[in-house]
């Protein structure tokens, strides 16, 4: 493995480095938990790695809360997400997903944007963020910003909408609008730790004082080429009481979720298993 490394320390330096690499093959490196494995498996010649680990930029590096919601910098690690009480109390789905990433050691260095930009259909934090209707804050080499819902950012296995002159800067999660939340992340795998999801379900439901669901986000992972936001299943829940989702209504909800699943059979599980467990798991959300 042999590559050049550029380590920008400021945003300006980063954009310059990206600009200088437009005619070359380059990759971003931050936590290196996936990149090194990837380069070992697929050796590349004449590669430049733009090392983000030394970048000192508030937007890239910090978690900030404002009236509209929470901004999480691209370089925030899974461990930092776990150390943020606001996440634990307001977005349990994200906290649980971050807590399920690989192992404690890997969570210390693996970054949020790394998890997202790998565009794996089984990305844990990605799945939670899709359920939370998170939005990407992307800048390009000319320092122009664009925003895009995370669900649209994913374009296929290992494919995102990110252009060669762009970098993901931060993620925005809208503030909860209702007093009650039912939020969680279900990860199905063989091991407790060091596991890639065979399938995952992220749900973040908000209800009013009377337990009527006013906002719903449900995303499923590892059952399609990208993480799927289950739009019609979410709409199906709006206006219903948290306690009425059972029997036929639950069956109906579950089949709405299943409509988004097009699982494959691979070394970890068969399509049959993924479909069956997805159905079973969606039915447990309201237990």
């Amino acid at each position: 493995m042999d590559f050049d490394v550029i380590s920008p320390k400021t945003r300006t330096a980063l954009l310059e480095a990206m600009d200088a690499c437009q005619d070359k093959k380059y990759r971003f490196g931050a936590g290196y938990t996936d990149l090194i494995n990837d380069l070992n498996a697929n050796p590349q010649e004449d590669l430049t790695v733009i090392n983000l680990a030394q970048l000192q930029d508030e937007v890239f590096c910090n978690i900030t809360e404002d009236d509209s919601g929470l901004h999480i910098g691209a370089l925030v690690t899974a461990a930092q997400v776990l150390e943020t009480p606001y996440v634990q109390t307001h977005y349990p789905v994200l906290w649980e997903a971050a807590n399920s990433v690989a192992s404690m050691q890997i969570r210390q260095t693996a970054t949020l944007a790394g998890n997202i930009c790998q565009a794996s259909p089984s990305g844990d934090m990605s799945c939670a963020l899709v359920a939370l209707n998170a939005v990407c804050d992307i800048i390009n080499t000319r320092d122009e910003m664009r925003i895009e819902p995370l669900a649209d950012f994913f374009r296929g296995v290992k494919k995102t909408s990110l252009a060669k002159d762009e970098v993901l800067r931060s993620i925005f999660i809208p503030k909860n609008i209702q007093p009650k939340i039912k939020s969680g992340y279900v990860k199905i795998g063989t091991r407790v730790s060091m596991e890639i999801a065979i399938l995952s379900v992220a749900y973040h439901l908000q209800a009013d004082e009377k337990n009527i669901i006013a906002a719903a986000g449900i995303a499923i992972g590892a059952v399609a080429p990208t993480i799927k936001y289950t739009q019609t299943a979410c709409e199906f829940l709006i206006g219903r009481s948290l306690y009425e989702i059972k029997d036929v209504v639950l069956e109906n909800f579950s089949s709405q979720v299943l409509n988004y699943a097009t699982p494959i059979s691979d070394v970890r599980a068969s399509a049959w298993y993924r479909t069956t467990v997805l159905e079973n798991v969606t039915k447990t959300i309201f237990d």
Partner: peptide, 27 residues
């Protein structure tokens, strides 16, 4: 419960700890 070397026509298709489910201390 979990460990199995999976072969397709004589070729090992899970030659890593990602694919071969050795349990960890957490289990």
């Amino acid at each position: 419960l979990t460990e199995e070397m999976i072969y397709a026509e004589g070729k090992l298709i899970n030659p890593s700890f990602h694919g071969y489910k050795l349990l960890t201390s957490m289990d």
